[in-house]
Design a protein around this nucleic acid. Sequence first.
DNA 1: GACCGTTCAGTGATATTGTCACCCAAGCCA
DNA 2: TGGCTTGGGTGACAATATCACTGAACGGTC
Lengths: 221, 221
Amino acid sequence: MADTGWIERFQGLSTLPEPVKAQLVAESTVMKVPAGTAVFGPGAVPDNLLFLLNGRVRVQQTSESGRDIVLYRVEAGESCVLTTACLLAHEPYSAEGITETDVTAVAIPRGAFDRLMASSKEFREFVLTAYARRITDLFRVIDDVAFGRIDVRLAGRLLSLASESDELATTHQQLATELGTAREVISRVLNDFQKRGFIAQSRGKITLLDRPKIAQLADSA
Amino acid sequence: MADTGWIERFQGLSTLPEPVKAQLVAESTVMKVPAGTAVFGPGAVPDNLLFLLNGRVRVQQTSESGRDIVLYRVEAGESCVLTTACLLAHEPYSAEGITETDVTAVAIPRGAFDRLMASSKEFREFVLTAYARRITDLFRVIDDVAFGRIDVRLAGRLLSLASESDELATTHQQLATELGTAREVISRVLNDFQKRGFIAQSRGKITLLDRPKIAQLADSA
DNA sequence: GACCGTTCAGTGATATTGTCACCCAAGCCA
DNA sequence: TGGCTTGGGTGACAATATCACTGAACGGTC
């Protein structure tokens, strides 16, 4: 018998009626994916709605010119609903999802997703709410890219990327991809941060020294 | 008896089973809105899904700093599905929809929308496909803002805004809002276009003189 | 018509960000 | 040791954004 406990980990699913929970569990399969795998994107179309139990997926876009920008991340306890819509669109869909850690997820096949949408008002609410959150994420990205200063944006990103420890194993190029800018820009801003005593740097590693100051910069929106 | 003809004008709705069409029509009401009205946004939350019969709605976002950027437009024959999701999200939702022309639309109340989602696979497909299109629109905006050149973006926007006539009644400030940039930037680029013979300008008006050249610039992506 | 207020557009100076073309250093490995 | 790859630094310059103005164009009013 399949484990049903995972449902409770998802905000919005715990209110599902029992029969729907049973249906959800019956039609789902647990999958494990190692870090660094492309779970969807050009050339890897998924047929499943994923509920992330553990780990994190980064969704990013590559422009025609070959430059990248991170759109959002799917964390444990969230689902990757945008893909369900993008599956149906026959337009070229340039975003891709990459596991940043080893990932455990529950996969709901397309058909089961549709049956759940038909049978449960609560499930529909869950899906639409998840959509709304992603869309507001995208709105935020647009706002940041269009009107945000990069030092402010970078400060914010450093804080969220280094939420566990003060050590951050990342390259300047990766940070540039986070914000959709160029490596040189990141290098200069980080050197400025270093001069101001916010961080320490070594090859491939950044150490946050003064979180309060960084936070202050980050929300001088 | 209500008119059912409008359904056929929407790509994706014509395949609905007859009973669903009847349901859709029975629960809908036609509304007319004059140009320049905010149909949704902070302070004007809609409880309806709108199908646009005539006219055009511009969806734009105002950042904290007070600057605007246009996200996308809803044209006749399209629906404004993103609002259905954003209604449910209790997060601050900063986008607003403004009618650019007089608009005729069919409104489906929230409850009816939910019943249709429950009862019709085709309707669900329609909704998800509409979502997907908007989301790819947003991805495109992000790509443009992050990596696009202003002159290229402006050229493209001039072409799409002046799709009917070569005359365009708009101010530099409005064009700046289109692209999420500053008026001065638009002024300088337009002056450059003028020098190159692409356009002619007078106060509040732009005339496209050389569409081919503008188009060539616009897709030198 | 003249006057006034508002909106629209032009411009120079300066700051920020992006691009290009390099260089050098650190780590890896034969 | 040398060579290779990756990560990072830097100067010069281009593109874009911001600031602080200016004046022109238009709409009223008297």
